[in-house]
Design a protein around this nucleic acid. Structure first.
Lengths: 300, 300
DNA sequence: CTGTTAGCGCATTCAC
DNA sequence: GTGAATGCGCTAACAG
């Protein structure tokens, strides 16, 4: 049987790409991963995959290992708090082209593909403003993550642009390994009862829906809930979850193609590709609208 | 930087393992995959991964590609209907040790690790018999799959062993690309109203719960629903889903370790490892019990 | 056009 | 002990 490795060694390439993601437990990343594999396989590359579990140490070992294995290029969803040195000392030092996905690394110049988190946040903010929501809490997400801060920034500016007064202001609490349910408990038992909760992503939102119920608050009606990613299960929640679609297949495909393009032309300027998001409005926020209008009718 | 590929070529090894799964959209396989990666990485191997999408043609291309890349060993969740020739002509011909996971290939002698599907089916069968369920429909799953037929066989024998009379008998309909919701529609509009529906796995079961509601049947109370895998979301369903836990982390870890052991000793006899399942009883079946006792009380 | 050779980057072997 | 040659399986360049 043909030994491609020997041939590749002669040609000084490996026909192999690396993909490091944090986890594939999140359906968004699962979809992203499958999309990338499709694209890579179609282009004649095989995929070396690893999971960082969002731990920089593990990520570093994976990057070293993949660099030693001489991947031709790398796609990486950076673990939160990834030091730019880790990338430099491993892949960059070995001259391996790479594209960052979904999260960028501050101060690290590189190709990037991800959903447009700022616009995503704005979409949610404007929507909530339309509902006359007066206080919002932002819950969940890795403590340090560009995706998280972008979504939060977008949310804030969207609320303002929508003309809503956010008196309670956007209280943001990140997850130190906690799930949505625990975050809600912490929020409510601190005495805070916002009109709406915006979750970092659907995984947190699902926990938040349960957490609210556990505290006797009817999710959607008592407190509006919105989120990001629009994973398939979002539509199946009770109440169905308002979420901003992030199109993981598109993000994955464009990331893979961007890397392939760079392999052709290593000198090209680094690009930043933002996938346009779409807000999908469902009961978890519209129910709250209804309750407000009711209250208003009662008041007048 | 150290070039492991050159070293490996000299040593006639690649320190690389292959993993081919059908999809990682199913959380069961996602967990399995992550568990395998952990184990492989810890043993100093990197993982070449591919998704067959349950298509034999795609699987074949992946196996060829991985064989050419000289993986030291392979872990495979066979696409349904995989011909044993495909394995032989690719990995076996190249002398690559491999272990099959979750599904076996009839007539193919190889290491195997998976949940004990027969016992899993029996657990569900006995449970339903206890509830005095008199008719059962088995829905979903790849048309040809050892996992599916094993679960079905176990279910049937479990129902019998539990002393239940299964008058409606176990009507089994496999999924030709259809989801749980469509399968329920087909079943009900054919005039069949079983006491219980057993799904091939949780993914189908989730669709079935929705399908039942769409047809005005309250899932759990009107028709009991049980399933396999016990994915995290199973407990979060409304009603919470009775399911047989299949412990994907355990299956993955044991598969990886079995492969690593074979790499040490290629001559050893092939083994068949079955992970012991556990039935997790929840409302989707216990509600039905309640409704039956009520009906009996009313009758007497 | 077909057959031979040199070298990709290592580890192993042999000579010194 | 240190240092130079050999070969893993290919492909490209070269010679016949």
């Amino acid at each position: 049987m043909y030994n491609r490795r020997a041939a590749d060694m002669r040609n000084r390439k490996s026909r192999t790409l690396g993909l490091v993601v944090t986890t594939v437990r999140n359906p968004y990343f699962a979809e992203l991963t499958m999309s990338i594999e499709q694209e890579a396989h179609q282009a004649g590359y095989t995929l070396l995959q690893g999971y960082s579990l969002d731990e920089v140490a593990r990520q570093r070992r994976l990057l070293e290992s993949m660099s030693e294995h001489r991947i031709d290029g790398l796609m990486l969803i950076p673990a939160s708090g990834s030091p730019t040195e880790d990338i430099h000392e491993t892949v960059a030092a070995a001259g391996i082209p790479h594209v960052l996905i979904a999260r960028s690394i501050p101060g690290h110049e590189a190709d990037y593909v991800g959903p447009d988190n700022i616009r995503s946040g704005e979409l949610v903010g404007r929507h909530l403003a339309t509902l006359k929501v007066a206080s919002v809490a932002f819950l969940g997400g890795p403590p340090v993550s560009t995706a998280r801060s972008e979504r939060l920034d977008g949310l804030t500016s969207g609320l303002r642009a929508g003309g809503g007064e956010v008196s309670y202001d956007v209280a943001a609490s990140a997850a130190g390994g906690q799930g949505g349910s625990e975050l809600v408990s912490a929020l409510l038992s601190a005495g805070a009862v916002p009109d709406a909760i915006v979750a970092y992503n659907d995984m947190y939102a699902f926990g938040i829906l349960n957490g609210l119920r556990a505290h006797g608050v009817e999710p959607g009606r008592g407190i509006a809930v919105a989120s990001f990613d629009d994973v398939p299960d979002a539509a199946a929640q009770e109440p169905a979850l308002t979420s901003v679609a992030g199109f993981p297949e598109q993000v994955g495909a464009r990331a893979a193609r961007l890397l392939l393009a760079r392999l052709q032309d290593p000198a090209r300027a680094s690009r930043r590709v933002l996938v346009t998001p779409r807000l999908v409005v469902r009961e978890s926020t519209t129910l709250w609208t209804a309750s407000v209008s009711e209250a208003e009718r009662n008041a007048s």
